[in-house]
Design a protein around this nucleic acid. Structure first.
Length: 468
RNA sequence: GACCCUAUGGUCUAGCGGUUAGGACACCUCCCUUUCACGGAGGUAGCCCGGGUUCGAUUCCCGGUAGGGUCGCCA
């Protein structure tokens, strides 16, 4: 099958061999504004960006907005936001502020109509395309072809039975294959790094480049990202949109790190790597050729690793933002108290979306009680007496620190002849409504004596919980 | 259906003609502990199947199977 018969090799291959190694790398990410940034698209963007940064080349953003119905400023903004969130800066293309960078624009396909029609006209003039039923069809070469792919190797296609390709619809609109090739040609793209779903389309693209008498770019088809069950990840699937990670409290560096690990590996058994190191090590030939399933568990773990590495200041800033996003407005609340509480719950948190949940008991006196815990801890023999004893011990403390609280409760356990746990659990439930949480004694210290005693009193007031 | 790509524990991967097949996530056990986590120490689990080539295949070749992709006047 894999003949190396020169007669079967596209002339395009010769151009590759003639390219200079010093040629400046130009890669592009060409999303269509669908209203979300797909995780697979984000990975494609990431790999293009990595390659550009690794080779000192340019990363171009081109918006494939030929489908007018989906072409809204909001949809384009979602692409901008997603790329910027991931830290993937582009050297050419439309910028979020409305300006444009780069000399090879316009970078919106919707503004490039004249260019496409000029190329179609050329094909028509040279007899390489013809009109049929109002559409324009490109005469595809009926010869075998080998696609030289930087990741997949030499991939051969028959092409002898390929039908001619519509390049301009009856309604006058040029099709994807045509515009994609023309844009890559006009923008001087040197490496097309895209999903493997385009591998089978590449012979058509090569034919178009040849018809234009142009040098085709190098191709690198990267494996696809599949769902956990191995099916194709579509827009509708859970976790398919970058937006979900942005609002879910994931750290962008963590998502980016995880995405790097899908199809690429540093080969030294490390999982957590600064992006600079990935850039330094990244290259196309070492990319895996098989598809990968998206593993939310692992992303969660990676996120936890990054979470731990956050500086105190960054953590507080991030956490406050998450609380605000969650509707926890802190006006009127002592900012120092909030910061202390945030620092205390940090150890409980692996992902941003947990911040509001763990913070809730600190922020409201009307906190709900965990019913199962109430039944288990408070509706038991002697619970009321123990809780009252705790209140009394805490009320009489000369000073209020985690250490003094701990000493008091342990001393009480000793005098009552019960395990410390028999006091800790009711106390935790009494001041937070929760069976779990951060270190109890530190929580008491942060909450302060006044708040703690008031909460214990309110808990004690629920007489229906305590057998009399 | 045709064509193309792929195939290491459940998942992501390293490796590779001769290895006790390495790491990570997840899972299980134990330790730590006021809870849940974290952390620490262990553990279960893998080279898709069948033929070749070879002294020797997880590794190379062929076939099968499975998964994915492409076959639009979608992008």
């Amino acid at each position: 099958m894999a003949q190396v018969n020169s007669a079967l090799v596209c002339p395009e291959r010769l151009w590759h061999q003639g390219r200079l190694m010093s040629e400046a790398v130009r890669v592009r990410f060409a999303p269509s504004p669908t209203g979300l940034l797909h995780i697979g698209g984000a990975r494609t963007a990431l790999f293009n960006w990595l390659y550009a940064r690794a080779k000192g080349g340019s990363f171009i953003l081109r918006i494939e907005d030929t489908d007018a119905a989906r072409n809204t400023p909001e949809a384009v903004a979602i692409i901008f936001d997603g790329l910027r969130w991931l830290g993937l800066d582009w050297d050419e293309g439309p910028m979020p502020d409305g300006s444009t960078r780069g000399e090879r624009g316009p970078y919106f396909q919707s503004q490039r109509g004249e260019i496409y029609h000029r190329y179609i006209g050329r094909l028509l003039e040279e007899g390489k395309a013809y009109e049929e039923d109002g559409a324009v069809k490109f005469r595809t070469p009926k010869t075998p072809c080998t696609v030289p792919d930087l990741i997949c190797g030499e991939v051969s296609f028959d092409r002898t039975m390929d039908p001619d390709l519509v390049i301009r619809r009856k309604n006058g609109a040029p099709v994807f294959h045509l515009v994609n090739v023309v844009d890559d040609l006009e923008m001087g793209v040197t490496h097309v790094i895209r999903g493997e779903d385009h591998l089978s389309n590449t012979p058509k693209h090569l034919a178009l480049f040849e018809a234009f008498g142009a040098t085709p770019p190098h191709y690198a088809h990267i494996p696809l990202i599949l769902n956990a069950n191995g099916s194709k990840m579509s827009k509708r699937d859970e976790g398919a949109s970058i937006g979900e990670y942005m609002t879910g409290g994931y750290l962008p560096s963590a998502v980016r790190n995880y995405l790097c690990l899908l199809g690429w590996s540093p080969k030294d058994n490390r999982e957590i790597l600064p992006i600079e190191e990935v850039v330094a090590k990244f290259d196309l030939p070492q990319i895996k050729r098989s598809n990968a399933r998206f593993d939310l568990n692992k992303l969660f773990w990676v996120n936890g690793e990054y979470w731990k590495g956050l500086s105190d200041g960054d953590y507080l800033t991030f956490a406050r933002q998450l609380m605000a996003d969650h509707g926890q407005h802190l006006t009127g609340t002592d900012p120092e108290y909030v910061d202390k509480a945030l620092r205390l719950i940090r150890e409980k948190i692996k992902i941003g979306r947990d911040v509001p949940e763990w913070m809730a008991p600190f922020l409201t006196e009307a906190f709900p009680y965990d019913e199962a815990a109430v039944t288990k801890v408070l509706k038991t023999q002697g619970a009321r007496e123990r809780l009252e004893a705790i209140r009394q011990a805490l009320a009489g403390l000369p000073d209020w620190t985690a250490e003094s609280c701990e000493r008091a409760i342990q001393a009480l356990a000793g005098s009552l002849g019960v395990k410390t746990a028999a006091l800790v659990h009711p106390c935790r439930l009494g001041v937070s409504g929760q069976p779990v949480g951060p270190s109890l004694y530190h929580m008491l210290e942060v909450m302060g004596r006044e708040r703690v005693l008031a909460r214990l009193d309110r808990t004690l007031a629920h007489t229906e919980w305590f057998g009399t």
